[in-house]
Design a protein around this nucleic acid. Structure first.
Lengths: 224, 224
DNA sequence: AGCGGTCTTGACGCGATCCTGACGCGGAGG
DNA sequence: CCTCCGCGTCAGGATCGCGTCAAGACCGCT
């Protein structure tokens, strides 16, 4: 989902953060001190930084000052100090949020979500592109040379199921269950009919499918 | 400097906030309850909203929900509840920050500064323009060749829901839940009736819709 | 109470979509 | 060489979803 740089010298807390953040779908990079933080921030290009103010080498605000000139993403500051003058100082130094330890993990995640929501262009668009056509899963649209292609609900269900697993073979039972329901697992004929329709609409040469391939006896495979 | 909408039913706190914010160079608008808040937010076009969750008429999250669809600026939530589940709920409902009462005025100001620093020039356009008509989400107004178009509340709800996701297909269940409520997810008939009305009012050729398109069996799509 | 506007509900025609059956083809196995 | 199974193709009929119109119910306002 997003890349998070965690700056903390406490190995235990860093570990907990890494596990929690990874479970929430983020990619995590950890830096144990200020110098490493600046180095990693420059090389790893994180989307957001979680910065503990209590570091062994540099003061947290110095890290913030070193970061801010060029790092545009949000920075969430962690600190054991609850004094509001500290908060004001950190926020005015460029922090976007300030959380005092000990803190609740759920709250931290929610605050990160709030920061990332404002972020650069929002979350990644799940778009699958081939040389012949483009599938936008979020917008539920298929385009071929920029022109929209009309798909029926069944056709779309089938296509999205295949496109969601690029390169992977999808069994016929799997497809039937996903599109028609568990009661239709034997109706392999449906697949033949609708795959033919999809190929007619999407493949450059429907007689020799290149993207929606048949694996005889097993299922179908979408190869980008 | 910036226009701040303060939503709080406690006259004393509202007064203190007005004085402090004005001293910091902000223009202040105060709303004592949820309905007034939504009204003022639409008419005064604030840059940021400070929202107390404890309101006499509406739940704070309802105000947030009513605000978020069209208000792109930051919202800072005030609350007496320090429970982290409350925080998570508010943040995920669209709040950008959450401050528990009692709070330090200096910290609140610093947090507001941090929020405003992130830019009143957000990429979100609250106005959607097509060749045929213009939709102003914030002002709740549709104009066609500069002339205002009268829409009923239901028509507006439907239109704003579609316009908010340009190019994306919006499922009929999704639309029904957003406009009528979760109990009406099966009433696809409503959609047909109101889409027809919208097309009559907005489309150049209602018989051949160009902007409010139907995706049979799936939903509707607004294409600018 | 009366009134205008809005929302709900029903009925109808039409077109699109889905299901189904029949046929030909090709490869695997006997 | 022959048979059988799975796949692709085609075409028809039943069904579903959509758009349209109109009448009744339900507000809020005067």
């Amino acid at each position: 989902m997003s890349r998070v740089l965690v700056v903390d010298d406490d190995p235990q807390l860093a570990r907990a953060l890494r596990i929690t953040l990874r479970a929430a779908g983020h990619e995590v990079v950890v830096a144990p001190d200020g110098r490493a933080a600046l180095r990693e921030a420059a090389s790893a290009h994180p989307d957001v930084v979680v910065l503990d103010l209590g570091l062994p080498d540099l003061d947290g605000t110095e890290v913030l000052a070193g970061l801010r000139p060029w790092f545009a993403g949000p920075v969430l500051v962690l600190s054991a100090r609850a004094d509001s003058t500290d908060k004001v100082r950190a926020l005015d130094a460029g922090a976007d949020d300030y959380v005092t330890k000990p803190f609740d993990m759920g709250e931290l995640l929610a605050r990160l979500r709030a920061l990332l929501r404002r972020g650069p262009g929002g979350p990644d668009e799940p778009v699958v592109v081939t040389d012949a056509f483009t599938v936008d899963l979020a917008a539920r649209q298929v385009t071929i040379d920029g022109a929209a292609v009309r798909l029926t609900p069944t056709e779309w269900g089938l296509l999205s199921e295949l496109v969601r697993a690029p390169g992977r073979l999808v069994g016929q039972r799997e497809l039937l269950r996903a599109v028609w329901g568990p009661a239709y697992e034997k109706e392999t004929h449906y697949l033949r009919v609708y795959l033919a329709q999809l190929r007619r609409k999407l493949e450059p040469d429907p007689a020799h499918p290149r993207y929606l391939r048949t694996e005889p006896g097993m299922g179908y495979r979408f190869t980008p």
